[in-house]
Each structure stands twice: as C-alpha cells, then as structure tokens.
C-alpha cells in the first residue's frame, strides 16, 4: 500500500481508539489495560516476518528473540486478562 493509504488507515484507527473507550467502571481499569496490552502484542506479526525471512544469522537470532518476547506478551496477556475477569465473576 502507498504511504497516503497507510496514513489514512492510521489516522482513522487513532480516532477509533479515542472513541471506543468511554465510561469504564474502575473495576475494569486493570483488565482493560491488560487486554489492550495483549492486543499491542500485535508486534508478533512483525516478529514472524523477521524470523521467517531467510536472511543473515544476526537477523534470525534477533527475530527469534522478538518472537519469544511478543508471544509472551500475547499469550500471557490474554490469559492473565481472562483470569482477572474470572475473579470478578465469582464475586458477584
């Protein structure tokens, strides 16, 4: 995609991000932070591309470290969010 299309996508997504969060009850602050943190683990896509490309040894090693870090972020992030929300349910 050309730069202008990418910037269009970026600006619209920023506006959406501003609008999508409204009036969050305090009890959900931490789970919301945790859940959106897991989504920011989307860097895993970049790590996959970096690891998968058949380039130099240095880039493969750095790519694998990136992939491990991003996977921890994604898997751990969604799991820990689920655990937090689970606890709230039992309280009710």
């Amino acid at each position: 995609m050309d730069l202008v299309s990418l910037i269009t996508v970026f600006v619209l997504a920023v506006f959406l991000g501003f609008e999508v969060i409204t009036k969050v009850p305090p009890i959900l602050h931490t789970p919301l932070m945790s859940g959106s943190n897991a989504i920011s683990g989307i860097a895993i896509i970049g790590a996959l591309i970096a690891t998968g490309a058949e380039n130099s040894t240095v880039s493969t090693v750095l790519g694998v470290i990136a992939l491990v870090a991003a996977t921890i972020n994604v898997v751990g992030g969604f799991l820990v969010t689920h655990r937090m929300l689970d606890k709230f349910k039992k309280k009710d």
Partner: peptide
Amino acid sequence: AAATGFVLNNTILIIAGSLVGASGIIL
C-alpha cells in the same frame, strides 16, 4: 507497534497498534 507497521507496510500492525495507542491514552 504502529510505527513497526509503517516499517513493514503492514496494515494490521498499524491498525491494532494505533487503536491501543489512542485508547491507552484515554484509559
């Protein structure tokens, strides 16, 4: 992550990254 999306020309990195970037500020 959104900046990395511009490095790789990858839309999902840009969208998910900027969503979290903006909603994170609001939160």
